[in-house]
Design a protein around this nucleic acid. Sequence first.
DNA 1: CCTACCGATCGGTAGG
DNA 2: CCTACCGATCGGTAGG
Lengths: 196, 196
Amino acid sequence: METAQLSRKDQIDQTATALFRTRGFAATSMRELAAALGMEAGSIYSHIRSKEELLHRICFRLAEEFFAGFDQASADDALPAAPRLRRAVESHVRVLTTDVAASAVFLHEWRHLSEPARTEFLALRERYEAGFRELIAEGAAAGELYAPDPAFAALTLLASLNWLPSWYRPGGSFTPPDIAHRLANQLLFGLEVRGN
Amino acid sequence: METAQLSRKDQIDQTATALFRTRGFAATSMRELAAALGMEAGSIYSHIRSKEELLHRICFRLAEEFFAGFDQASADDALPAAPRLRRAVESHVRVLTTDVAASAVFLHEWRHLSEPARTEFLALRERYEAGFRELIAEGAAAGELYAPDPAFAALTLLASLNWLPSWYRPGGSFTPPDIAHRLANQLLFGLEVRGN
DNA sequence: CCTACCGATCGGTAGG
DNA sequence: CCTACCGATCGGTAGG
């Protein structure tokens, strides 16, 4: 346990993230969470208001991290679209690997958010996808990328990346930058115009 | 409702699949399922033994369908590995689009299976992935495909395909064969050796 | 942070 | 296939 210097609230967030990931939000009880933290179920409520607040915080924090990474990666206007897309892919992989458990929750448990949070969340995700779509469309218009349908290409690209939390294990044979590089290569070689 | 000629048990399976997909297995109650079927919760148990039996049947039925499709696609020994891989990709997409709801449950809800079913299921999935891995390795060894790490390539490939149920809607602008073709192209152009 | 508890809901069964 | 019910567990609160 290296959680010694975390605040109690951060400990709760972290433990909840791990449980929501492995057992799912709905199947995780507050009593289970409490037991994992070495306390009683009722005591958790002096730190949080509801179970859903935990999920809400995880989902929206990750959304912010994905956006921050993307904005930084795609901001450089001097760069062509293809290398900016590569940087955006690497940023996405960095967020995924830095916080695998939270990413898995972000990707799979958001549907347990109640309204209006759920609709807000989906709007954020759509905006994020649109960023990739536009980058790909820009690269296609400039002849840098081969993508007859940028929307389709963006979905497939993000799909390949988002499956990562389901097999990635920290400390495995691939390091995060290694994974980012390999994924970007595998995906972009399929997008780049050949022999041009 | 076109479920008129389905047996009551098939109606239960079908409705359960739809609910497990949209709300998740754990968050779906038997009373909800009963209401969707126009009956009382207790009455369902004259057709099934338990809630988990429903999940079990969905997961293992889909596993069979994926295997049957793969075996047929990859069986032709006269064909090089690359076109057999393309056929396997198309088969995978066919299963996914033919039965989107069940596929989504197969992909995301299997972890709610209790032992030993859960371990059995994971073994099946691993065997399926191995099929793709070996096809890619074979193609790489023959110089047909560019895949420095077949295991990594197989994971990325299946990832791109498996995200499909999260955005595919029957009756959208893409037909299933269209999707299969585009996905195979986008993925294989990234794998094929260029200018060879 | 704990004890003790609330009303609601869960999966499942008995008996008809 | 329904009515009526079982014990267990749920998220959350009051009072200290």
